[in-house]
Simulated assay, not measured.
Amino acid sequence: MTDETVLAAVRQFSQSKMGNDETGHGFDHIQRVVGLADRIGQSYPDADRLETLTAAYLHDVIDEKLVADTAAASEEVRQFLVGQGFTTTQIDTIFLIMDNMSYHKTLDGTAKPLPLEGQIVQDADRLDAIGAIGISRAIYFGGHFGEKIYDPAVKPRTEMTHAEYRNLNNETIINHFYEKLLTLKDLMNTTAAKQLAEHRQQVMLDFLAEYKAEWNAEA
């Protein structure tokens, strides 16, 4: 099979798993991450495109915040990849990326170093969490889980543990920008992603300034 044939199958598998998501991690998000990863990857010809885009398509299929049984989900993905002819080495690389690219891994210090392919996917995923799309996804995610939009008396949390990060009872949607989203620009791995992140960062800063001005009836 050609790489494009394999990627078409991977795309279909991902869509079957993420197509009904209602948290902001649906297949539209997957497609944007894949597109960004492909765009960033053009600047890094040494990166394996098949491994990069496969990890981009599948990165949320085994995410702990979206899947009740991550072990079962991981085994299903592994068997799918075997069926598509991926080698053991390729599968190990794809899982290394998926298992270590999430933001929460940076909080507990358990993340393993990512290969170039993983750095590209991580950057693409983080880019989709910021900017105009990131604003809408943050509000959509928070609304899905019943988060309060904003409360000036509730200050953004700092130095969170993994457990604290997952505790949405102690978070507001606006605070999420300060606790995570505004930090992502400086966590980008690749030069290409860093350049894209600059504009998206400013979009968020402008939004927050306008939001607070309107909240205080100043605008």
Results as ranks from 00 to 15, higher is better:
Gly134Asp: 11
Leu208His: 07
Ile91Tyr: 09
Leu81Glu: 00
Ala9Met: 08
Ala68Gln: 09
Ser74Asp: 01
Gln195Asp: 12
Pro45His: 04
Glu64Asn: 10
Phe95Gly: 14
Asp69His: 03
Val154Gly: 03
Arg126Lys: 13
Glu51Asp: 13
Leu184His: 07
Gln42Arg: 13
Asp28Pro: 09
Gln195Tyr: 05
Lys148Phe: 10
Met1Cys: 14
Thr183Val: 07
Met98Lys: 01
Asn216Leu: 08
Tyr103Ile: 04
Leu196Ser: 07
Phe145His: 05
Ala68Asn: 06
Pro152Val: 05
Glu51Arg: 06
Asn189Arg: 08
Gly109Glu: 00
Asn170Leu: 05
Phe80Lys: 08
Gly143Ser: 12
Asn20Gln: 09
Glu164Leu: 08
Asp186Val: 03
Ala37Met: 10
Gly83Val: 01
Thr87Phe: 00
Val33Arg: 01
Glu210Asn: 15
Asn20Thr: 07
Asp48Gly: 03
Pro113Gly: 09
Phe13Met: 05
Val61His: 11
Ser43Val: 06
Leu36Tyr: 08
Asp69Lys: 04
His162Pro: 01
Ala72Pro: 09
Asn100Ile: 12
Leu205Cys: 05
Ala47Glu: 09
Tyr140His: 14
Asp125Tyr: 09
Arg200Leu: 12
Thr93Cys: 08
Gly142Gln: 03
His176Ile: 04
Lys148Val: 15
Leu66Cys: 01
Asp92Arg: 15
Glu76Ile: 00
His59Met: 05
Ser136Thr: 10
Asp186Leu: 00
Ala68Ser: 09
Val203Arg: 14
Gly134Trp: 09
Ala138Ser: 12
Val154Ile: 08
Arg157Phe: 07
Lys65Val: 12
Leu81Gly: 01
